[in-house]
Computed example of a mutant assay.
Amino acid sequence: MASQFVLLLGLLAITCPVAFAFDNSPLQDFCVADNSSSAVLVNGLVCKDPKLVQANDFLFRGLHLPGNTSNAVGSKVNLVNVGQFPGLNTFGISMARVDYAPLGINPPHIHPRATEIWTVIEGSLQVGFVTSNPENRFITKLLQKGDVFVFPMGLIHFQRNVGHGNAVAISALSSQNPGIITIANAVFGSKPTVSSDLLSKAFQVDKNIIVRMQSQF
């Protein structure tokens, strides 16, 4: 009996972290987000009265439009999460269109609440992610039109256009609000700034290099 109890505890220890790793499952047909509500939010959005829900609550238009890639990194992410698309509320999904200029990149970043699956619609993209400590393995692949790649939740990943023309990709994420932390912005562009002495020691470079990096963000 005791051994069975220990086994049960072990199974719970293994499965519970997985059960709470993603957005909660809905308990009704839908819960269209009421973005006009002033109610206090804990972890999610208030449901719109089901009797007031319309077909347009489940519709988003705009992913056919190319993004403006005239910026420092040469890419534009058009994210469709619950903030733009109230009908996604409680469904645990979102998506994005990403446009790349030639040599454009989607800089190294993480999604703290979502796994991401990536489909190349046009062009050629180098993609990659880095595994967690202590291995820090760099896993990368060159993708062509129609190829699909997955980025595990919480790992640093990136994409780069290696073709001579523009590139387009569609991303799907396992959270209605996956979040994004762009590594360079978070480290060098925080408000207030992280101590340059600390970053100098962490990156093992001269403090003046850190100060210059912080000035870029």
Rank of each mutant, 00 (worst) to 15 (best):
T140P: 01
C31L: 12
D197L: 10
N185S: 14
N161D: 07
A55D: 02
G128L: 04
P86C: 13
T140G: 01
M153V: 09
D147T: 10
N106R: 00
G44R: 01
P178M: 07
L59Q: 10
A19P: 04
N161T: 07
T140K: 12
S36M: 11
F58A: 11
L142M: 11
N133T: 14
P107H: 06
M153K: 13
L199T: 13
V42W: 05
L9H: 12
N106G: 09
P134N: 04
M153I: 09
S70M: 11
K51H: 01
S36W: 04
I209T: 12
V80E: 01
V6H: 13
A2S: 08
S195T: 03
N106C: 05
G74V: 02
S195A: 14
M95I: 06
H111I: 10
N136C: 12
F188M: 12
A39V: 08
F151K: 01
Q54N: 10
S171W: 09
G67R: 05
L88H: 03
Q54K: 14
L125M: 13
A169Y: 07
Q216P: 01
N71Q: 05
G87Y: 13
N185R: 08
D49N: 14
V82H: 01
Q204Y: 03
F20Q: 08
K141P: 05
H64T: 14
V205F: 00
N185H: 13
K48E: 02
Q204W: 02
N166G: 08
N106Y: 07
T115D: 11
A96E: 05
I156S: 07
V6Q: 15
Q4F: 03
F30Q: 00
F91E: 01
S171C: 04
L8P: 00
V205D: 04
V120H: 04
I93E: 00
L9M: 11
D23E: 10
L59K: 15
P17Y: 12
I183N: 08
G165L: 06
G92L: 05
